[in-house]
Nucleic acid binder design. Structure first.
Lengths: 342, 342
DNA sequence: CCTTTCTTTGCAATCGTTTTCGATAGATTA
DNA sequence: TAATCTATCGAAAACGATTGCAAAGAAAGG
């Protein structure tokens, strides 16, 4: 029952007038007489006429559609960003096509080409980890399509960017521990060849130095997953009696550390205060509830979409690009209240 | 620098032949001489010609695009479903437009109309909680667009559906507790006017009766959030000495219950075994790790998309609809090992 | 050498809409 | 009465691609 939707031609035929008149009548063109307008508009209403967006797009080369390319959807930060993008898109009348690369470079290339082929008005990208060649991004620009990177940006392409400030987030987290009275703070770190690992560790060190505390590599333990914490349980516990605070590179690591401490007789936060780095909604579930810095995925998505719209609708200057940096925000809960018993 | 992409007409003009010949040459039509084909194809390759998907869609009334309408993106289950949808879509050459209603009926109506206007080939919907009028779904069908519901289905529209079996999931969870030796099992339940609340409680009761245990409303406590567990701490603890198992309607409730038990001197799972119902990745983070039943969002998304493609490509029979039911799977962890000390 | 057949190509219509440029009235003005 | 103006509408091209049909030329058969 492939029913064919009503077109302007259909209306014209039934009403015995030309398609051009119908078109003009529907959009209140001054050339059309009030009688004809009335006739056309009420009839269109009656048959529930809806313009064919494809035809409009083809003619105007404007699709009111944008593309989103991300490594994975099932990731709290990314889905939060998408949500922010989608809400702005909706409010401005854009549709969003979503493409997930699964960290696959080839798929990223194909996804971008598909978006170009569909003539999207703009593209939002968070790069795959395995992308080391950038001509597919340049290809987008060469097709005259604005592109905005978020979170996993591409340095090689000069365009708008929106990122979270990992350095500052880590600094805020560490300074918070210091303000709670911590003097010797351990850092559970991610690999230093990853940007987040490097930046968060440097933020941690920066805060320590700012307060005349030494940034000692002996207090930096390389573990950034729940499993790796358990694997390094002995190392962590051997240091535990010497420390009064832990800053972990992410929340699940922080929570695992708390659990390791607890089952070895330490009290969190009485003996040791703990702060994480927000990567999901799990901080609330932890016991004690975890103090953490939260990456503002929703506003990052909104900002990226707004920047993109600026270039699509040319309210922004063509060749002037901007990098927006969002600093994570401290969410203080129980785990960092050094000295307090829970 | 709104650069205009190369079209078939451009190629025709440069090569001094007609657009029709170019079109046929590009798709190896037998009518075209080998020489011409070679000429056109190498030239198209050289200038990186790409067909305009809009023009193709307009002509063929096939967009190779589907729409996804969901209440919210930032929800582990939904983002997992989207991921499953997107992976199938990608493998079959479809693009996915994503629309988030934020549980808003009006927005659902507008989103669906926008998808119709854009002539998507099919639509996947999980209804908003506030939708009690269904003519916008019927409108989709009237436009000849296949629609598949998942999770939050609409009974009023006869079409394909994909759902998770809450009743059976709850039954499996409860039977697991019984198999671990539990005799008196508490249920933390969601409101009974919600389908998941009703179905999961009934599954719980069914398992009890199957094993000649009584399904006693005294052991059913109405709380389905972390906060409500803490609010009912006294009630739960007053019953705790009398029970040896808890089945909670979701994971965060289960985890909160474990924490309440622990700080009141109970050992989980030694004294009381606990099982949750999967709504995210938090079960792994809990202490002890939470046994739960996991809703298979990814395969639900895949199944929904496959059903939709069946109707789009008419490999499925037009008027015969199917309801696929996926039973959650028990993921056994530590929290349910009654009698064991951790 | 003429007719037939086959190969290869182009014309034009189509998808649904917008928009430029006229065109045809009737009304107004000189 | 003739000329100009205004109001209202339609024809046709355009967006980029596909495709049925016609036509031109070449090859083949008689």
């Amino acid at each position: 029952m492939k029913s064919h939707p009503i077109t302007i031609k259909d209306i014209a035929r039934v009403l015995g007038i030309s398609p051009s008149t119908v078109s003009r009548a529907l959009k209140d063109h001054p050339d059309i007489s009030p009688k004809t307008k009335q006739l056309v508009q009420t009839f269109a209403e009656k048959v529930n006429y809806r313009p064919n967006a494809l035809a409009l797009s083809l003619r105007s080369s404007k699709t009111n559609t944008i593309g989103i390319v991300i490594p994975e959807i099932v990731h709290h930060f990314f889905s939060t960003v998408i949500s922010g993008i989608e809400d702005i898109a909706y409010s401005k009348g854009y549709n969003a096509i979503i493409c997930q690369t699964n960290e696959n470079y080839q798929r990223e290339v194909i996804d971008l080409q598909a978006l170009i082929d569909n003539r999207v008005d703009g593209i939002l990208v968070s790069m795959s980890k395995n992308t080391h060649e950038f001509s597919h991004f340049q290809n987008v620009r060469d097709n005259g399509i604005p592109i905005v990177f978020f979170d996993r940006i591409c340095e090689a392409i000069s365009t708008d960017r929106v990122i979270a400030d990992d350095f500052e987030g880590a600094r805020i987290a560490t300074k918070h521990l210091i303000s709670k009275g911590c003097k010797k703070i351990m850092h559970l770190s991610a690999p230093q060849h990853l940007l987040i690992g490097k930046n968060r560790k440097e933020g941690y060190c920066s805060a320590l130095k700012e307060h005349q505390l030494q940034c000692n590599d002996q207090l930096v333990v390389k573990c950034d997953t729940r499993e790796s914490v358990f694997a390094k349980e002995d190392e962590i516990i051997s240091l535990a009696s010497d420390i009064d605070g832990i800053f972990a590179v992410n929340d699940s690591t922080a929570i695992a550390a708390m659990q390791v401490l607890q089952r070895n007789g330490y009290n969190v936060p009485k003996d040791i205060a703990v702060v994480g780095f927000g990567d999901g909604p799990i901080a609330d579930i932890a016991y004690p509830p975890l103090t953490t810095v939260e990456q503002k995925g929703y506003v990052i998505g909104q900002a990226a979409m707004n920047l993109l719209i600026g270039h699509i609708e040319e309210t922004a200057i063509e060749s002037e690009f901007e990098t927006k940096i969002f600093t994570p925000e401290l969410v203080e809960r129980t785990s960092s209240q050094l000295g307090k018993t829970i």
